[in-house]
């Protein structure tokens, strides 16, 4: 594993994170937005693990597991919300889900 320097991992992580942000901001389908969030979380996981490996410390691994657990829980709740939204509104367009206004 000596061949791949830390920087590459970090660059890959940053690219994935930016893709996640872009997807989150510009896609209209709620499910896509949701997947973008997962992408951001995993981008962060990647940098955690990379740092952890580089510094020979286990903290980063543990953090990555935590993030996965949270992401799993979040996926459950999030998908349930999405289902409910679809049942009530028959749409998955995020711009139409704006009843928090006013």
């Amino acid at each position: 594993m000596n061949g791949v320097p830390l920087t590459w991992y970090l660059i890959l992580s940053a690219v994935l994170f930016s893709l996640g942000i872009a997807g989150f901001l510009f896609r209209k389908n709620i499910i896509t937005v949701f997947m973008s969030i997962e992408l951001m979380l995993n981008a962060v996981n990647l940098s955690f693990v990379a740092f952890s490996y580089q510094l020979k410390q286990v903290n980063g691994h543990i953090f990555a597991f935590f993030v996965m657990v949270v992401a799993a829980a979040e996926a459950t709740v999030g998908l349930a919300i999405i289902l409910t939204v679809f049942k009530n509104r028959a749409t998955l367009n995020i711009d139409e889900v704006n009843s928090m206004k006013n």
Partner: peptide
Amino acid sequence: FQSGNIRSYAT
């Protein structure tokens, strides 16, 4: 700021 538009919040 409270537009109700989630993506503007995210921005």
